[in-house]
Design a protein around this nucleic acid. Structure first.
Lengths: 199, 199
DNA sequence: AGTTTTTTCCTAGGACTCCTAGGTAACCTA
DNA sequence: TAGGTTACCTAGGAGTCCTAGGAAAAAACT
């Protein structure tokens, strides 16, 4: 009988597709095997276990996302870059919910190093070139941006914004405006102004 | 033979405990049953399916978190309230990772309504009383805060901050400083200042 | 108290997933 | 073309989810 031509790359691709359809948690070795017209046991010569399947989806998604981010950043700076990059995240999550969810699986140190995770923080740092920030503020800002992007997308996907008439799109663009302002007026040194007296 | 005294409340509590130990994804009907000294099939007179078990953990966590939030907010205002409330989230996530993860499961409309989800947005709105914001800016700000809190905690938990010497605690307090400043200087109307010309 | 009803737990079992062990057949290389 | 490697197979054990139908404990009603 002819071989199915399974490779780890095609496996990851199929698993990613499946994740987008049924959610990452429902990505199963058996189903992926089925899509290749192969028995589930056969896949274990390509992957160690079911977890590796999800890890490979994560690595794939991280790389795709980094590619899109790089494309969006090309030729842009300042707020323009910030907005473009942010939209890459949100659009990707909408288009590929399963892949995006995979982005959050914990990777062991070696896998993380070989992944595009570093490219993401580098790109975020590149955005911050438009806003004069020295270390360690720059790292803090990178983390702020990552938190807002992921947090918003995650809450939106979980349906957290559906119980209120205000559109998510409007909030999103307003949040990015605010982020832009915040980065420009980054609290430099020991800023202990007490806001509780600000009415 | 004597009965084990299983109730949905005790079930949810046990599932929550299990979630904190092994992760929400590994919360299984069989294991919960085992902890009650009961066969797995017996639990199906209390819950409909395994998914309901996780939903109940979510509802429990949401309520606990809301209680802590309310306690933290009592007698505080402005930045003081903001910081206290934010720390409730982060501390809870550290203390109860499984419960916190459950917080992000999608709830059907009725369950969501009966949950403490509303209390959370109400409390966030209460924080914003310290910063004069009218609708719809207030809703946008609520979403920004939610995004930052959840995003930061989520990334930190996924190990996203471990590959850099800068401590997560320092970044966190800096992020909250920035949030405080951002809320005070919220971009009111049509703020289209182009930041790309700022350097 | 005795009887009926309800609830809680049981056993049995089917369907599915994960994964291992060991075998066979296709492809690659010397 | 023989030998070796790799991709796939069957068989099966262990675990989970869930249903069906039965027994016994607890609660409710005479």
């Amino acid at each position: 009988m002819a071989r199915a031509g399974v490779t780890v790359e095609r496996l990851a691709e199929a698993a990613a597709e499946l994740a987008d359809e049924v959610g990452l948690a429902n990505v199963t070795v058996s189903e992926v095997a089925r899509r290749f017209g192969v028995k589930d046991a056969s896949l274990y010569s390509h992957i160690r276990n079911a977890h590796e399947l999800r890890v490979r989806v994560a690595v794939l998604a991280l790389a795709e996302l980094a590619d899109r981010g790089a494309a969006a950043l090309a030729g842009r700076a300042g707020k323009d870059a910030l907005v473009a990059f942010a939209n890459v995240y949100r659009d990707y999550a909408k288009e590929h919910p399963g892949r995006y969810a995979a982005t959050q699986v914990e990777l062991d140190p070696e896998t993380a190093k070989a992944s595009a995770a570093r490219r993401h923080s580098d790109m975020t740092r590149a955005i911050l070139r438009g806003y004069a920030l020295a270390e360690p503020d720059q790292t803090d800002a990178v983390r702020l941006l990552g938190s807002v992007f992921h947090g918003f997308v995650s809450l939106e996907q979980a349906g957290g914004f559906r119980h209120h008439p205000r559109g998510a799109d409007e909030s999103w663009s307003r949040v990015l405006d605010t982020l832009d302002v915040a980065l420009r007026s980054w609290p430099t040194g020991a800023d202990d102004a007490d806001a509780s007296r600000t009415p």
